[in-house]
Design a protein around this nucleic acid. Structure first.
Lengths: 127, 127
DNA sequence: GCACTGCTTAGATGAATGTCTAAGCAGTGC
DNA sequence: GCACTGCTTAGACATTCATCTAAGCAGTGC
């Protein structure tokens, strides 16, 4: 847990024999802390069931869907869908509210847009 | 593996007692096949080491970096970095070329932009 | 050819993750 | 209050994944 703290401007192991293999970075790359937080978000999205859940919610009229509708769209048990929804919720990608018997979910589009922006023009980011 | 093939227009389980819990989708949600392919791509990005690798490569002068430089930025062994680079390569997110002693990697920005677009305005997508 | 460096592949191992069943909590309606 | 439905939590289990060490392949230079 020390190498990633190097100033990255000191003489490099690659400079042996006087032949540098490559140039220093031209912009500030992602730090470890940001990378870990972003990876947490991407992990939440990196599952076919959760991608389809997001899509189903986004596609529903009014931008929200109840769990029963989401569950019906899969060949999975209720607890499994509930688990995936929880992962998305913990990542801040969706929010939910109980209304009487049913629980409704909707997309937190700000979070998705943040992820989108990171992959967009360039990976380096001020996050 | 059959429920997701439902037309989604037939009477629903949620209609019990005549009280529908929710409305049908307002647009075409992600299919299972597309979701699986996208999840594969997102999984490749959903790791702090791989995010930093992408960032380091993108930030390097000329848009490419050699492995030795990438390895030095982490507190991980060479084989581990090589493994992560392979994951990114198999996902089509980066490409590489050997030039003499060193191997250089660069970003396949088209792939990243595709992922970016999916998370962007809406999750529903014609992928 | 031989030693050296750079990088990848192969195989093992511990941790994280997706799924299930069983059980519990929260509303609704009789 | 009691039964019923909708949804979540808890815990178990199989699979996937990140990492390591050991070994192998590819260039370079003497």
């Amino acid at each position: 847990m020390s190498k990633q703290e190097l100033p990255a401007t000191q003489p490099r192991a690659g400079d042996v024999n006087g032949a540098a293999c490559c140039a220093p970075p031209a912009c500030e790359p992602l730090g470890q802390a940001e990378a870990e937080e972003l990876a947490r978000l991407f992990k939440a999205v990196a599952d076919p069931v959760r991608l389809r859940l997001l899509s189903l919610i986004a596609c529903h009229e009014g931008g929200e869907a109840c769990v029963c509708d989401l569950t019906d769209a899969f060949d999975l048990t209720g607890p499994t869908i509930s688990h995936h929804l929880k992962v998305l919720r913990k990542a801040g990608l969706i929010d939910c509210e109980r209304r009487g018997t049913w629980v409704y979910y909707w997309i937190n589009s700000g979070m998705l847009e943040r992820l989108s922006a990171i992959l967009g023009p360039r990976v380096a980011v001020t996050a």
